[in-house]
Structures are given as C-alpha cells and as structure tokens.
C-alpha cells in the first residue's frame, strides 16, 4: 500500500488522527486512548496486516510523552509509524499491545523502566534493566544524576 492509500485507510479507522509525511514512512499521530483499537485493526485488517512490530520508543517531550511504534508488514511490505501521544506526563498510561505483538512485552517493559510509561494490562510490568528499587526514570529529560551523567 502506498502512503496515500494508507492515509485514507487510517483516516477511516481513526478520524482524529493527523499525519506527517515528511520522512521516509507515513507517520500517524494519534491520542493514546485510540491506540488499542487501532493496533488491532492494523494487525488484523486484510489490506494492512502489520504483523511485525520492530521498534517501540518512548519519547519525553518535556510537557507530554509519546510512544512511537514502528510497524512493518512482512506480507505486504509497507511500513507505518504510529505516534501515540500521552498528555499526562506525571501518570502516563497507555494500553499494552503485548497480546497483539508478543515482542512488545519486552519493549514495553524497557519503556516502562527507562521512561516510566505505564502499559495497562501488561502481563508482567516490572523494571527490566534497572534494579527494582531504582527511583526515577533515567531517559526522561528532567532526570538528574550528578554522578554519572555527562553534559555536553
């Protein structure tokens, strides 16, 4: 599917979605609460079939957080980037997609560990890299560690 076709298709799915076509792939900007139904559609619709979630990134935009999902279809060979915006920075919550793409389980744990995004209904949401008693989320922009951090 080309960018344009994807765009029309996705507008039908999520009317509130906005698009950004600057990069190589189509970027879809949505709100966090639209994510779960959209993810299901992306995975299951016959002409979408995004079966390969290859990257999950949580981004701290200082006033809000967003989670970026890079999706590819191994059958139809198209890529889409979904950016889910989480407005509440202090208590960021988004639905997990680990039951749709199993790979998300570890990726979401990583995002929780380093960025503090809570994935609702995640089967096993614990710290992944850091110790269980770690305070704070290191990848956030306001995280301070006077000992270990280098500033350019």
């Amino acid at each position: 599917m080309t960018k344009e076709e994807l765009k029309t298709k996705l507008t039908e799915l999520v009317p509130t979605a906005t698009f950004d076509e600057a990069g190589e792939w189509l970027n879809v900007l949505i709100d966090a609460k639209d994510w779960l139904p959209m993810a299901k559609a992306l995975r299951n619709y016959f002409d979408l079939q995004f079966d390969y979630l290859f990257n999950v990134t949580a981004v701290d935009w200082k006033t809000y957080l967003s989670v970026v999902y890079h999706l590819r279809s191994t059958k139809l060979e198209h890529v889409v980037v979904v950016k889910a915006k989480i407005a509440d920075r202090n208590n960021p919550e988004i639905e997990t997609v680990s039951n749709i793409w199993r790979t998300a389980e570890l990726h979401e744990r990583e995002a929780f560990d380093l960025m503090g995004v809570k994935f609702l209904h995640h089967p096993d949401l614990r710290r992944l890299f850091l110790t269980d008693d770690w305070v704070g989320y290191p990848l956030r922009k306001d995280y301070e560690d006077p000992l270990n951090m280098i500033k350019l």
């Binding site: 290859f54 990257n55 990134t57 981004v59 701290d60 970026v68 890079h70 199993r102 790979t103 389980e105 570890l106 990726h107 990583e110 990848l139 350019l152």
Partner: peptide, 26 residues
Amino acid sequence: GVYIISEGGLTPYRIKFRSPGFSNLA
C-alpha cells in the same frame, strides 16, 4: 535500527536503538 529525533541542536534529542538480540531473546 537507529531512530533519531532531532530538535536541530548539536546532539540528538532522543535516540533509540533497535537491537536484534533483544527481540530474539524474547
């Protein structure tokens, strides 16, 4: 995979590496 978000500065705003081993381990 390398994912860079740039704000136009000298350094990346956010960078994310998609490492193959991480997913394979899952």
